[in-house]
Design a protein around this nucleic acid. Structure first.
Length: 980
RNA sequence: CCGGAUGUGGUGAAAUUGGUAGACACGUCAGACUUAGGAUCUGAUGCCGUAAGGUGUGGGGGUUCGAGUCCCUCCAUCCGGACCA
């Protein structure tokens, strides 16, 4: 009977479904284990071979843990709200609810094909009211909370009101925007004022701020959704705009998010990315008095290097700085105004692209607080209003930007670091001994930092200060396809809806055009917007709202009383293993960590970090294939001439293309190849000059290319016959070879490979194992289908340990025709193969090395084939090992051997040392690391016994020539070195 | 520019604590069985060399009896952040 994977896989997938094999209970005596995948955004493009990589890895691990006796939670769901569905709706006229539903169904079908062990009864969709009800509920909890800096945790806003009523607002409580007031003053404020003050403390709050506004998408974007000044989705330009927005006060959690990284098992690069994003730096804020016609102005700067205070040669403030108007002198007013106008005319993108040194002198001087030296104040766009105080003290001998600025504008440079400064570039060292520095002369810089800060604080002109790059996260979108806010506006006050009014359903809307004044589409729906005696908030929540807590919902998906019962979250606890891509490093992962900390502060869950261990699967890149078409270009006459001779499209094989270029030989058309930088390829020019033949590189579907060889027949049919008339110039061996480049996998590059096709051709088990066999899960690599045959061959070989293959067609299951397996007792040699495999598979799987795991199976099956071992005793155990990797064939053969139920309910075999011990082993011996011989020694012997045997060995004694060895090094179990 | 990662045959890659580098697989070559094979099986396969032998983990240097592995330095590729004071 042959290995009929299609029937087998269909059979077991149906069986798993109808027997609820993967349904997980919250009530089990077994220890729990939670394996989670980053749930997908169901895009219209469907799955390509890159998507399932992480799912397969987690699936293997989840099954493995189940075999090891854990109660494993392994759920899946959909991150279904978001911008792309809405963009798609606008472009194609399909309502997001419909397209999302379609895409989900399509995803599900593709996922089911691969045979995952997800517990689909726990599926969540962020766009479902029974899910986003709780997203809204958590949002309201954030809204009703503030961060108490004294207790260092989130608390109900009532606590803050009590403090205000009793003590008023004081410095330690103060939020940057809020004023200080006494308890009595607080009581005298009217409601609007009180609410405005409270808004400065709420963990989700509404405020005005500079936001990233994307005109093309018609919405604001969070900082991590903007890459190099353009939107992550679509690459549209993004500008700064002041708008009323909802925010998440994530900055209050900056320190805890940073500290928490030490408690979790993430990769170094992931931790690095997060801590860079948080961007904690410590230093001081220093007050500089400004000397000009108006008195009493002071300029506050932030610096991490207060030790360089005597090296300050100028100050720079951001063009948007609030003191610009007051600081500019009448003499410089014109120049300053012109400069500000210039800066405004430049987009964010231009600024980043061309880093010109620009700036203008304000005419005013600041005074160094220690020696009252006059320091000119400049304005320049290289100082950002958003970071620190928007003003800096410039130390050109220590900071390269300051240095270049000083050189450019001929500002004299003070050297405070002696020979460490060479006059050609700044030196940011902290190890120099200070010079020209008044009371810190002679001190090492890094020691001087604290001394200066102390002195500043004593004199009341500065304060120690920690700064973060991270900003509060913009939490509203002017879009339709997201969670509505449970907020009503009344007389300028945001009021929360009552829990009983949740969920606030997203109303149906056919026309998704934006509302007036930069508001979202919901603004157009008056009957929905007007609610009770106020108006609803018409913005919606961003894509990351639902994903910030979805991992908790899986624990208790049907609960309609709570977002997740305490009992369920206590049982499942942290996600033990979280698998996903690095692209969420600073977005989703930070937000979900913050939400978890918040829920922990509120006493709603018992753990503070959501993910215990994070594994980042690598990206599978596309391996694009190209054909090279010759296009005549230039005068009409020339084109006609060429076309007369060659009426069809001519394609050049890659090898020839390369060859002609390499040797500079004339092509068959006598066009001399020359390199032309203007074109993305090469140009073949004719002798006359302007007329030439351009070679265009065309993406060709990887699925009609076998390795690098083009299937020319399929090519002619491809794209509805666009290339039906193609003629080919072949290699010498008559093949048409394509060019290869690694790019991002995308439909437009024709380099996507659909898993469905591979599953159809080779089966899900082969596909799963091949994806793992490609290399370490964490590594990015281009997809290459060549090689899948090897894995398929392995499964067929495995099959032949159970059945003789015959061409006769037999029904699946129950029919044991051609069975070769037997119940004989296994020999030691066979058990050795088995136990070696058990040990290796356990280790490989545990340390996530699935690629070597697959190899281990191949070696095992090769060995068993060599031994002609068809014994049930061995094979049965092997099937248990294989069940996580190739679940379908394992189930089939497991039942063939007469077992009932799923193989996953078996327990993972234990390996026995007894079978792994060698009776004897050859040890190479090296003398002075040069010469080698082999000795045969027993396995468990002592160092002393080894030395005795070595010294008795004929070859060794001959080498030693009577000399005594200095030492004999017995290295573990392999090598002995004799040093003379 | 800063930070992180990676660099091993024709290809994907193994080598868990420093211990016979290249497991396993693809590809290639040769052979067997075949009317045929894109089926299956056997053998060979890092490179140079007919061979003995030499050489070999991006380059250079170091530690060690011994280095793919540890240290220094340079180079290349990928990813992330970039006027963050």
């Amino acid at each position: 009977m042959e290995y009929r994977f299609r029937d087998i896989e269909k059979k077991w997938q149906d069986w798993w479904k109808s027997n609820n094999v993967y349904k997980v209970s919250n009530d089990s005596p077994k220890p729990k284990y939670y394996v989670l995948d980053m749930f997908p955004y169901p895009s219209g493009a469907g799955l390509h071979v890159g998507h399932p990589l992480g799912y397969i890895a987690s699936d293997i691990y989840a099954r493995f843990k189940r075999l090891k006796g854990f109660n494993v939670l392994h759920p899946m769901g959909y991150d279904a709200f978001g911008l792309p569905a809405e963009q798609y709706a606008i472009e194609h006229g399909i309502h997001p609810a419909i397209s999302t539903e379609n895409n989900i169904n399509n995803f599900r079908k593709q996922l089911d094909n691969i045979g995952f062990c997800f517990d689909w009864s726990r599926e969540v969709r962020t766009s479902e009211p029974n899910f986003y009800k709780w997203t809204q509920w958590i949002f309201l909890n954030l809204f009703h909370s503030f961060y108490n800096r004294k207790t260092n945790k989130a608390e109900p806003i009532e606590n803050l009101i009590k403090i205000f009523e009793a003590e008023g607002n004081y410095a330690e409580l103060r939020s940057p925007n809020s004023e200080l007031f006494s308890a009595a003053e607080w009581k005298s404020f009217d409601e609007l004022k009180k609410q405005n003050i409270l808004m400065d403390y709420r963990l989700s709050y509404c405020g005005y701020g500079e936001v990233n506004w994307c005109e093309a998408l018609g919405t604001v974007l969070a900082n991590d959704e903007v890459i190099n000044g353009v939107s992550e989705r679509g690459g549209h330009p993004v500008v700064k705009k002041k708008l009323r927005q909802w925010y998440l006060r994530i900055t209050e959690y900056a320190d805890r998010l940073l500290e928490g990284l030490q408690k979790v098992d993430f990769s170094d690069s992931m931790k690095e990315m997060q801590s860079n994003w948080i961007g904690k730096s410590s230093g001081a804020e220093i007050e500089f008095l400004v000397r000009n016609q108006k008195s009493g102005i002071s300029l506050r700067v932030y610096t991490t290097r207060p030790d360089t205070i005597f090296g300050v040669d100028f100050m720079v403030i951001a063009p948007e700085h609030e003191l610009v108007e007051q600081i500019k002198t009448s003499g410089q007013a014109k120049a300053v105004d012109e400069y500000i106008a210039y800066v405004k005319s430049r987009s964010e993108r231009e600024r980043m692209a061309e880093k010109k040194i620009t700036g203008v002198f304000t005419g005013s001087y600041a005074l160094n607080p220690f020696n009252v030296r006059e320091i000119p104040i400049w304005i320049s766009e290289y100082v950002l209003i958003g970071y620190g105080t928007g003003a800096i003290m410039a130390v050109p001998c220590g900071d390269q930007r300051d240095f270049l600025f000083a050189k450019h504008f001929n500002i004299p440079i003070t050297n405070i670091i002696g020979s460490h400064y060479n006059g050609d570039e700044a030196n940011p060292t902290k190890d120099a001994v200070l010079e020209n520095s008044d009371f810190i002369n002679g001190m090492v810089m890094k020691d001087a930092i604290d001394v200066v800060i102390q002195k500043l604080e004593e004199k009341g002109i500065g304060v120690r200060k920690v700064n973060y790059k991270m900003r509060d996260a913009a939490f509203s979108r002017q879009r339709y396809w997201g969670e509505p806010f449970p907020i009503i506006w009344k007389n300028g006050i945001a009021e929360s809806l009552d829990d009983s009014e949740l969920p606030v359903l997203l109303p149906h809307l056919d026309d998704l055009k934006p509302g007036p004044d930069g508001e979202g589409p919901l603004s157009n729906l008056a009957e929905w917007k007007n609610y009770k005696d106020g108006t609803r908030e018409v913005n919606t929540m961003p894509g990351y709202a639902g994903s910030s807590w979805y991992f908790l919902r899986y624990m208790d998906p049907d609960n309609d009383k709570e977002f997740c019962s305490r009992k369920a979250s206590d049982y499942w606890g942290q996600v033990d293993l979280y698998i996903g891509g690095t692209e969420h490093a600073v977005g989703h992962l930070l937000y979900s960590r913050m939400w978890t900390k918040f829920l922990y502060d509120m006493g709603l869950i018992s753990h503070e970090e959501p993910y215990k261990r994070l594994v980042n699967q690598g990206m599978i890149q596309g391996s694009s294939r190209f054909v090279y078409r010759l296009n005549p270009e230039g005068s009409e006459e020339h084109i006609k001439k060429v076309r007369e001779k060659y009426p069809n499209q001519i394609f050049f094989s890659y090898g020839l293309y390369e060859k002609y270029l390499a040797i500079g030989k004339a092509s068959p058309w006598n066009f001399t190849p020359i390199v032309d930088q203007q074109f993305p390829g090469y140009i073949f020019k004719d002798e006359e000059g302007s007329d030439h033949i351009n070679v265009s590189k065309i993406h060709v579907d990887v699925n009609i290319v076998d390795g690098v060889e083009l299937d020319t027949k399929a090519f002619k049919k491809w794209k509805g016959g666009e290339f039906a008339d193609a003629e080919f110039i072949y290699e010498d061996d008559g093949k048409y070879i394509c060019g290869v480049e690694v790019e991002k996998m995308s439909k437009s590059k024709f380099n996507t490979v659909n898993p469905d096709d591979l599953v159809m051709k080779y089966g899900a088990d082969t596909f799963r194992m091949y994806e793992m066999f490609l290399g370490p899960v964490e590594m990015s690599k281009p997809w290459d289908t060549k090689g899948i045959e090897g894995v398929h061959r392995f499964l067929k070989k495995l099959w032949r340990l159970f059945f003789k293959e015959s061409s006769q067609v037999s029904p699946v299951g129950g029919d044991l025709e051609g069975a070769v397996w037997n119940e004989e007792k296994a020999t030691d040699a066979e058990l050795k193969v088995l136990h070696k495999t058990i040990k290796k598979i356990e280790e490989d799987t545990e340390r996530f090395s699935f690629n070597t795991g697959v190899s281990t199976f191949m070696i095992c099956v090769n060995d068993l084939t060599d031994l002609k071992c068809y014994k049930k005793e061995v094979l049965e155990q092997l099937l248990i090992l294989l069940a996580p990797y190739a679940p379908h064939v394992s189930e089939e053969l497991w039942s063939v051997l007469g077992n009932s139920g799923t193989v996953l309910d078996a327990s993972f075999p234990k390996w026995n040392d007894k079978y792994l011990k060698e009776t004897s082993k050859a040890y190479p011996v090296a003398i002075n690391g040069k010469t080698r011989t082999e000795l045969t020694l027993a396995l468990d012997i002592t160092q002393q016994q080894v030395e005795e045997i070595v010294m008795k060995d004929a070859i060794v004694t001959k080498w030693l020539e009577g000399k005594q060895p200095k030492k004999i090094i017995y290295v573990k179990n392999k090598m002995i070195n004799v040093v003379v």
